[in-house]
C-alpha cells in the first residue's frame, strides 16, 4: 500500500508580522511545517505501524526542505518536492493541478493532507485534487481506522460528528483532533539523512504553461478602515488597569 502525505511549509503563524510599506509579510519570517499536515503525516505512520507493508511518500509544493526532512525523520520513506517559481502563484487551482500531476505519476492508495494551511487557509486543495483525480474525499477528519481494505472515518461537522465508510483510493483531510504528531527521534533524524528527496519542476511533471496560469491575483495588503488607534496599556498594575477598563466600558456605554 502506498500513502502519499501532502505537506506545506508556511510562515510561522505565531510569528507573522506585516511590513505595511511593502504591503506584504516581513521578509525573514520563520518558516514552519503547516500544523495540520503533521497530523496527516502521523496518521500515515500509524497505519504503517499497524499493517506493515506500507510506503509513505511526503510531497510538497514550494520551498519545503526542512518540513520534508522532518517528515522523513518522523517516518516517511521518501520525499518529493516540486520547486518551480512558475507554480508558486498561490492560486489553489494551480496548486491542485501540480499536485495532481505528481500523484498521477506516483500512484497512490491513500492521500492524507492537512485540512487547511495556516497561510492561505482555504481548505480547498483536498476536494479540488479529489475532483482532478476522480477519487472520494472526506474533510475535517478526526478519527481514522483501516480494516479489511475499507476506511472508517469520523469527521467533525458544525453540530456534531459523522461516521463515514469508504474504500480507498481516497483523500482524507486531517484536523488536529486526529492524533498527536510525534517528535522525530534521534534515530529517525539520522535515518532521514539516507532517505531520498526528489526535486521536480513543472516541465518534469508535463505541466503545460496554461496549467500553471494563475487566474487569481493578490493585490497589496492594506488596512481596510482607518480606525482610531487603540490604546495599549503597558507597565500598569492590575488595579489601575481595571480602573481604565471600567472607564472604557462606561464611556462606550458597554455596561
Amino acid at each position: 500500500m502506498k500513502i502519499v502525505v501532502l505537506v506545506k511549509q508556511v510562515p510561522d503563524p505565531n510569528a507573522v508580522r506585516f511590513d505595511p510599506r511593502a504591503g506584504d509579510i516581513q521578509s525573514g519570517t520563520p518558516q514552519v511545517a503547516n500544523e495540520y499536515d503533521l497530523h496527516a503525516m502521523e496518521a500515515a505512520i500509524q497505519i504503517k505501524e499497524q499493517q506493515g507493508d506500507v510506503e509513505i511518500v511526503a510531497v510538497s509544493l514550494g520551498q519545503a526542505r526542512e518540513t520534508l526532512n522532518r517528515c522523513l525523520a518522523m517516518g516517511a520513506d521518501r520525499a518529493i518536492v516540486v520547486e518551480d517559481a512558475a507554480l508558486a502563484s498561490g492560486d489553489s487551482a494551480v496548486t491542485a493541478k501540480a499536485l495532481a500531476a505528481v500523484l498521477r505519476a506516483e500512484g497512490f492508495d491513500l492521500i492524507l493532507v492537512g485540512q487547511e494551511t495556516s497561510d492561505g487557509g482555504t481548505g480547498s486543495v483536498g476536494p479540488a485534487l479529489a475532483a482532478l483525480l476522480d477519487v472520494p474525499v472526506v474533510s475535517n477528519v478526526v478519527a481514522l481506522e483501516k480494516q479489511d481494505g475499507r476506511l472508517t472515518v469520523q469527521r467533525e461537522i458544525e453540530d456534531g460528528r459523522q461516521v463515514i465508510d469508504l474504500a480507498p483510493p481516497a483523500i482524507l483531510c486531517a484536523l488536529s483532533g486526529l492524533n498527536e504528531p510525534r517528535y522525530p527521534s534521534l534515530k529517525g533524524i539520522m535515518a532521514a539523512r539516507r532517505k531520498p528527496t526528489e526535486a521536480k519542476s513543472a516541465a518534469d511533471l508535463g505541466l503545460a504553461d496554461d496549467a500553471a496560469q494563475s487566474r487569481v491575483s493578490w493585490g497589496q495588503l492594506f488596512v481596510e478602515e482607518e480606525t482610531a488607534e487603540g490604546i495599549i496599556l503597558k507597565d500598569v498594575d492590575a488595579d489601575s488597569a481595571v480602573d481604565q477598563l471600567v472607564a472604557f466600558l462606561q464611556e462606550r456605554k458597554l455596561v
Partner: peptide, 12 residues
C-alpha cells in the same frame, strides 16, 4: 464545511 467542500470539488 459542506459549502467549502462542494465549491472546491466543483472548482477542480
Amino acid at each position: 464545511f459542506t459549502a467549502r467542500d462542494v465549491l472546491a470539488r466543483l472548482a477542480g
